[in-house]
Design a protein around this nucleic acid. Structure first.
Length: 426
RNA sequence: GGAAGAGUGGCAGAGCUGGUUGAUUGCACCGGUCUUGAAAACCGGCGUACCUGAGAGGGUACCGGGGGUUCGAAUCCCUCCUCUUCCGCCA
């Protein structure tokens, strides 16, 4: 949620940023409405406060009069307060309406993109921040797609997943299951070495948490919802990890906060279809290791690049061809100010698959979360939050299988072998 | 799931027969005096948000969340949440 102070004080930058994110003219117009309504809110607050001050003063007087035995005078004042109280009710109602209206408008505004974000509407407009300049692995004449490899080596059963649950819930078996576990441990170890504290959070969260990180109301339909308890299955570990710092005031010396966690992620993926959902490309449940940081506003973009470097090192160790994209305004998520996507090449499918997304949210999440820090001047300010996948398993497994297939079988990258306990799948 | 008790400022812990209580006190923390330095002692400061003001300052709200009674509530009532203990159930 954008800070009201930015809307009031940096309107030009806000409008320019919203245009980059391709928001509608109607939404652009809401900016002026927000400011007008906020003016009204302030005036109402002033009036209400003054009125309450009067009532408080009179109430004190009444107390004194009763003690002095002047019941008659006290009763006169009581009548006076009764009228004033009627007025406060009107003002309170008006104040609530203003606040609700402002919130309703403001919550629909996406984050302001960083100045480096390219202008654009769709995936083709993303900037290739780092291309893959080396040779692609030589996979021979007819490389198999991962779903065929998975079947050939009995690693994953999509059919059993359908039996147990439905499409998009694969069952990993034998070396396939072991490969998953190996990747999880590998990624967690790498994150821990990089200074992230490992967290095992709940996999279901309440409404407050989903609101704070921005999944609600934006992605209401994308989350699995337990009606009875009003809980949501997490679509990413970002939600519980970031929410650990909801309503927290940090000291400047606490920065940076670095968290990592492995969790399954649950996504309804309503509206997806076709080759998008083939094999491991898009699942309802997949495993992911997330890295999250809370950082001082002055350093958050350095931190973003550190996270990019971390993810890059993982892909290098897994010996996968990858590229890094700087997302354009139209392709970025609602919450983000700057996002780098990582894609690995799926040779058999002839397409790039997104395996990580690293973003700086600046104060967009912390504003709603009330994650603050005490600055040198003693004032509280909003911290910056960042997160990224490091990494998302299913698609890594897909490209791992495809890129490392040989006539002898699927070779396991050296870095992963201590974790799998085997060097080849055949 | 049932019964009883409890939720107060960073922590500990008063207040809870309603009225100068944003809230006694201790610890922690920050500043100062003293000291070669430190400790101790003493003095002072020490919550968050919002409104207002150039500023100093003034005001409002907040004692788990929400609602109510009252001229006035941390204090009374209702409701929800959480914790503790006992019972039941159970990986």
């Amino acid at each position: 949620m954008i800070e009201i102070s930015i809307i009031r004080e940096e309107k030009e930058r806000l409008i320019a940023g919203l245009k980059k994110k391709n928001v509608s003219d109607q939404q652009l117009a809401s900016v002026d409405n927000i400011i007008l309504e906020d003016d009204k809110r302030k005036a109402t607050q002033t009036n209400l406060d003054n009125l309450l001050f009067k009532i408080n003063t009179i109430s004190d007087e009444i107390g004194g009069l009763f003690k002095a035995g002047k019941a008659q005078e006290a009763n006169d004042l009581k009548a006076q307060v009764a009228t004033l109280k009627e007025e406060t009710k009107v003002l309170e109602q008006s104040l609530k309406e203003s606040k609700d209206l402002i919130e309703e408008w403001i919550i629909q505004l996406p984050n302001i993109p960083h100045h480096s974000v390219p202008v654009g509407f769709k995936a083709e407009d993303n900037e290739v921040f780092k291309a893959w300049n080396e040779d692609m692995p030589d996979l021979g004449e007819n490389p198999l797609p991962h779903w065929e490899l998975a079947e050939k080596f009995n690693l994953i059963s999509f059919k059993d997943g359908v039996k147990l649950t439905g499409a998009g819930f694969p069952v990993y078996k034998g070396k396939g299951a072991r490969l998953q576990r190996a990747l999880i441990n590998f990624f967690l170890d790498e994150a821990t070495t990089a200074g992230y504290q490992e967290i095992q959070p709940p996999l279901v969260v309440n409404k407050e948490s989903a609101l704070a990180t921005g999944q609600l109301p934006d992605k209401e339909g994308q989350m699995y919802h337990c009606e009875k308890d009003d809980f949501y299955l997490i679509p990413t570990a970002e939600v519980p990890l970031t929410n650990l710092y909801r309503d927290v005031i940090l000291n400047k010396s606490d920065f940076p906060i670095k968290l990592t966690g492995y969790t399954p992620c649950f996504r309804r993926e309503a509206g997806s279809y076709g080759s998008d959902v083939k094999g491991l490309n898009r699942l309802h449940q997949f495993d992911k290791i997330e890295i999250v940081q809370m950082q001082h506003p002055d350093h958050s973009y350095d931190t973003l690049m550190d996270m990019v470097t971390h993810v890059e090192s993982l892909l290098n160790k897994l010996e996968l061809p990858y590229r890094i994209l700087r997302l354009c305004g139209g392709d970025m998520s609602f919450n983000s100010a700057l996002t780098f996507d990582f894609e690995t090449y799926s040779a058999a499918q002839g397409r790039w698959l997104e395996v990580s997304s690293v973003s700086n949210f600046e104060t967009f999440q912390s504003n709603r979360m009330k994650l603050r820090f005490r600055d040198e001047d003693g004032k509280t300010k909003l911290a910056h939050t960042l997160n990224g996948s490091a990494l998302a398993l299913a698609r890594i497994v897909a490209t791992l299988l495809e890129n490392h297939q040989t006539p002898e079988g699927i070779k396991i990258p050296n870095a992963l072998q201590p974790y799998t306990g085997f060097a080849i799948i055949n």
